[in-house]
Design a protein around this nucleic acid. Structure first.
Length: 152
DNA sequence: GCCAACGTTGGC
DNA sequence: GCCAACGTTGGC
């Protein structure tokens, strides 16, 4: 899951109550569907910093809730406000994400240089989605490269 | 700031 | 349903 550190960094998430943040602001249907249909409480998450000096995976997290309506879509003052979304039929949903471990920055350059990660969705050409699935084999490889203590 | 590679919108 | 125009993402 990508986050711009200027918005919410892994340190911001760690500093939040229970190291948990609501993953607000996803405004892409495919990414929303991954959260709504593809995630279960306890699933592992790779916390990725994007649009910054050194993009890369900076932490391990877990899905901490099932999907629910993203409140920012109804907040006229929020940059994520969606005037077309109706309270009875919210367009946008989110999950809570709990950081389990802050890791070193496994940089995008390092990911791209890894022969065994070439099929990772987020590395594919044209991949812009802020949320992409990770195959179990890639998950294991990445945790190893991160030197993670966590086993999820 | 540039720009490739998307996704969305809306006229027809 | 088509598709041009526009908007966004995100690395560089």
């Amino acid at each position: 899951m990508k986050s711009e550190p200027s918005e919410v960094s892994v340190d911001d998430a760690l500093a939040a109550p229970k190291s948990t943040v609501a993953w607000t602001g996803v405004r892409n249907y495919q990414a929303r569907n991954f959260m709504r249909d593809g995630m279960r409480v306890g699933d592992g998450v790779l916390f990725y910093h994007s649009s910054c000096a050194e993009p890369g995976i900076v932490g391990i997290a877990r899905v901490a809730s099932t999907a629910y309506a993203d409140p920012t879509q109804f907040d006229a003052k929020s940059p994520y406000f969606d005037p077309k979304s109706q309270a009875e039929a919210p367009r946008w949903e989110l999950v809570d994400v709990q950081v389990v471990e802050k890791t070193r920055n496994l940089t995008l350059a390092e990911l791209r240089a890894s022969a065994d990660l070439q099929e990772l969705t987020v590395l594919k050409k044209g991949s812009r989605l802020s949320i992409t699935p990770v195959e179990p084999k890639h998950w294991r490889l990445i945790l190893k490269k991160l030197g993670a203590h966590t086993q999820l």
